[in-house]
Nucleic acid binder design. Structure first.
Lengths: 223, 223
DNA sequence: CGCCCCTGTAACCGCTTTGTCACCATCCGG
DNA sequence: CCGGATGGTGACAAAGCGGTTACAGGGGCG
């Protein structure tokens, strides 16, 4: 679980960092607005703590920019008494705010609450419809059947399809996502992988129900 | 959904164009600032991608000019690390920015987010009159009839016509948009494609009502 | 070393899509 | 009336693509 901490006060930044690291979070720090935004992109943080007053871009601007492209939970750090800031922060899509000064305990409690609200506190196996994926065991279960072991590539493919369950994914995207930076021409690989995966998860591989061919790609059907 | 792509780097322009076209957007390209502005007015784009560094007028200037008369979503393409650019872009009213280099996936995700924010999401199928296009399923529906499957080329053609519904499009433009960089002489291809499309969408293909022949081209008739 | 599993490659089949050609109808200006 | 240009139509060939079978290389492991 990655947390981005953006504050220009070095002491406070280190204090928050220490607290969160102790609690088991992975912490990324930023001392100003632009750095925060850049880090957010590069590191794809799961939660963001933003000080309102920062050089470069204010916490508000950063919050707005983040909201433009992500629904990641954002908590603003405000100065007590500045109610306008509070209203403005919530209006911009911040999920919570915390008045300075605050105790580490309070901070942790709020963060946990935020993650719980965002449904990110558990590492539940990916699932959609009758398909349940267990990333650790490298297995799928279809409905209430027996878990089936998957190879690395099969798992990746199914994971991709599951993440966009119900919608078609183009062959190109699948190639990139499953194999990495491969150029075209490798449709054969995808063909094979789909075939092998169907053998494992379809009751009748000749008449696929779950993993269907769609326009310009494949999709996972969920009822 | 029309997207204006303005960048002086021909390779990048083509890459972005390809990505967006594949994703179902209609792409208009410009290689410098003045061209971008002109195209924006003529084509009334729904979304604008602006490179910061362009000959003629910089991305900032173009952004400013566009903002002076429209609230269309604008995304700036910046060079990583130029933090001043970032601040300046957001200050000028750009809605989002993207650091180069970026992956096609990221670009698409951002564009979708932007369109969603602007309430223009194209998850709702493209439609005009009685013609409804489903880009993901590669189908059309005429009025309340059954969805009809379209091939890749048929889809592209219909998309072009739909985007300019009611107005004629010249054969040359259609050839370029549907097949890419083909020179003249291939009118035969267009003739055939139109014929095949009419077989699918016209109740009486011999007396076309929707897809009519117009002066030096074709047009989609909407009532 | 030999065995097994995963992965990549090739070849084939059947079907769809696309490109090409040939022919016809119409229009229009010499 | 002729001849060329243009658009519509049918037929057919070439190319593409998905599904399938078969097989080879390679890595891990006993």
């Amino acid at each position: 679980m990655k947390v981005l901490v953006a504050d220009d006060d070095a002491d406070l930044r280190e204090l928050i960092g220490f607290t969160l690291t102790q609690a088991g979070y992975l912490v990324i720090k930023a001392q100003d607005g632009p750095t925060a935004l850049r880090s957010f992109e590069q590191e794809s943080a799961d939660l963001v703590l933003l000080d309102v007053n920062m050089p470069g871009l204010s916490g508000f601007q950063v919050c707005e920019a983040i909201r433009a492209r992500s629904r990641v939970p954002v908590m603003m750090l405000t100065v007590r008494g500045e109610e306008e800031d509070l209203v403005r922060a919530l209006g911009l899509g911040a999920d919570d705010y915390l008045n300075k000064p605050f105790s580490p305990r309070t901070l942790l409690a709020r963060i946990k609450a935020l993650l719980r609200r965002a449904g990110m506190e558990n590492t539940a196996p990916l699932a959609a419809g009758r398909v349940t994926l267990d990333l650790e065991e490298h297995t799928v279960r279809i409905g209430s059947g027996e878990p089936v072991r998957l190879t690395k590539l099969e798992l990746r493919l199914l994971q991709m399809l599951l993440a966009n369950a119900g919608h078609a994914i183009s062959s190109e995207r699948l190639l990139v996502q499953v194999w990495g930076h491969r150029s075209g021409g490798d449709r054969q690989l995808l063909k094979q992988l789909v075939h092998r995966l169907r053998q494992k998860i379809e009751t009748d591989p000749a008449a696929p129900v779950l993993l269907r061919t769609a326009a310009a790609g494949y999709k996972l059907v969920v009822e």
